[in-house]
Computed example of a mutant assay.
Amino acid sequence: MTMEKFDAIYQRAAERKGGSDKLEALVSKPLSKDELAAIAEDRWLSAFSMKVFQSGISWAVVRKKWPAFEELFFQFRIEPLLMLSDEILEQKAQDPSIIRHLVKVMSIRNNAQMIYEARLTHGSFSRMVADWPAERITELWDYLKKHGDRLGGNTGPYTLRQMGVDTFILTGDVEAYLRNTGVIEGGKNTKRSLQAATEAFCQWREQSGRSMTEISQIIAYSTGDNHLQ
Rank of each mutant, 00 (worst) to 15 (best):
M1W: 03
T2K: 15
M3K: 14
E4I: 15
K5I: 13
F6N: 11
D7I: 14
I9F: 03
Y10T: 03
Y10D: 10
Y10N: 07
Y10R: 13
A13Y: 03
E15N: 15
R16N: 09
K17N: 15
S20I: 12
S20D: 11
D21E: 15
D21A: 14
K22Q: 15
L23E: 06
L23Q: 08
E24Y: 08
K29D: 09
K33W: 05
K33P: 00
E35G: 09
E35I: 01
L36Q: 09
A37R: 08
A38L: 06
A38D: 12
I39A: 02
D42V: 01
R43Q: 15
W44P: 00
S49C: 01
M50T: 02
K51Y: 00
V52C: 07
S55R: 00
G56M: 05
I57C: 01
S58C: 01
W59A: 13
W59E: 00
V61C: 00
K65I: 05
W66S: 09
A68H: 12
F69W: 04
E70D: 15
E71C: 01
E71P: 05
F73N: 00
F73A: 00
F74H: 10
F76S: 04
R77F: 02
I78N: 03
E79G: 01
E79S: 04
E79M: 05
P80A: 09
L84I: 10
E87G: 02
L89N: 07
D95P: 03
D95C: 08
P96Q: 07
I99W: 11
L102W: 10
K104L: 13
K104S: 10
V105L: 08
S107D: 04
R109K: 15
N110C: 01
A112C: 04
Q113P: 01
M114W: 01
I115K: 08
A118Y: 09
H122E: 02
H122I: 00
G123L: 05
F125W: 12
S126N: 05
S126F: 06
R127F: 06
M128N: 02
A134V: 15
E139C: 13
L140I: 10
L140W: 07
L140S: 07
L144D: 07
L144R: 02
G148R: 13
D149Q: 06
D149K: 01
D149I: 00
D149G: 00
D149S: 14
L151D: 05
L151C: 06
L151F: 02
G153I: 10
N154V: 06
N154A: 10
Y158L: 15
T159H: 08
R161C: 04
Q162I: 04
M163N: 05
V165N: 02
D166S: 11
T167D: 09
F168A: 10
G172C: 06
D173Q: 15
D173W: 10
V174E: 04
V174A: 11
E175Q: 14
N180C: 13
T181G: 02
I184D: 03
I184T: 03
G187W: 00
T190S: 15
S193H: 07
L194W: 05
Q195D: 09
A197F: 07
E199H: 05
A200C: 11
F201G: 02
Q203D: 11
W204T: 02
R205V: 00
R210G: 03
M212Q: 04
I218L: 06
I218R: 09
I218N: 05
A220K: 08
A220G: 08
G224F: 05
D225N: 14
N226L: 13
L228I: 14
Q229D: 14
